[in-house]
Design a protein around this nucleic acid. Structure first.
Lengths: 135, 135
DNA sequence: TAGTTTTTGCAACATTGTTGCATTTGTTGC
DNA sequence: GCAACAAATGCAACAATGTTGCAAAAACTA
């Protein structure tokens, strides 16, 4: 599904920056930081980018995958809604390239997590991402 | 062990703010945010607080337990060094009082995590902390 | 295409992170 | 306790991000 179709499905206006952000995150293997996106989308105002990220997060189209030292990394969200996120993965911050990758987790780990009496469980880790590990 | 003795053990100078920060975090059941500490320790300069947190983190006396929306929460660190942290717990952000609590995790979950080929594995969750759950 | 609603871009300000530097404080040897 | 040295503090200054208000522009609807 194209970014335009996705926005239409959620009854969101198809503006240039929303399409650009969704396109960019959809094509990216890793989650992107605010500053990275700001550089890539420098034709747009930074406040507009900020508000676009808020809106897309609110509707569950993207989510903040990782946050470190005040830097936020956003990823395209599939199978999530504004309320419920698909947490069948962990967020791996690559020690080599600095990118943030979503990694599937084992069934054993999933069942262990399912027993916890908490919501919004989030696992992050550091190591080598797929691209850097195979390089 | 008192905060003064701890600082001595690590060959760190026993300054007022270091003792105040260690005392505050040692007595606190939950991790404290930068702004909370800034308010509590307003007789000290905010840059000094910032550098104190850096130094104590570097020596493994405290650690950044949780980070959300640019707000960092610090906790007293026991059984950790600058290099290796004791990650036998998860960080629970209380939906009610906003505090961050360290919660012990099950052996099953520990063994699941031990199988992951990553370092610095960190789990955070949202729910009711001990104090708020029993209230 | 005109009218309505939403979004954008800009100004403005708050908070946090960060560095340089002069002053103050902690520590050590006498 | 005091002098001397090293380290830490407090302040100025600036960068990045977060956040709100508002007029202009763009997207949608009839």
């Amino acid at each position: 599904m194209t970014s335009e179709e996705t926005l239409e499905q959620f009854n969101l206006r198809k503006t240039k920056i929303r399409i650009a952000v969704l396109d960019s995150l959809s094509q990216s293997a890793v989650a992107q930081s605010y500053s990275t996106m700001q550089n890539a989308l420098h034709e747009f105002d930074r406040i507009t980018l900020y508000r676009t990220l808020l809106t897309l997060t609110e509707y569950g189209l993207i989510h903040k995958a990782y946050e470190e030292n005040g830097e936020s990394f956003y990823a395209r969200c599939f199978g999530c809604t504004g309320q419920l996120h698909n947490h069948e993965h962990l967020h791996l911050k690559c020690s080599s390239c600095g990118g943030v990758e979503c990694v599937e987790i084992s069934d054993q780990l999933k069942s262990s997590l399912a027993q916890l009496p908490f919501q919004e469980i989030n696992i992050s880790a550091k190591g080598a991402c797929k691209a850097c590990a195979s390089a």
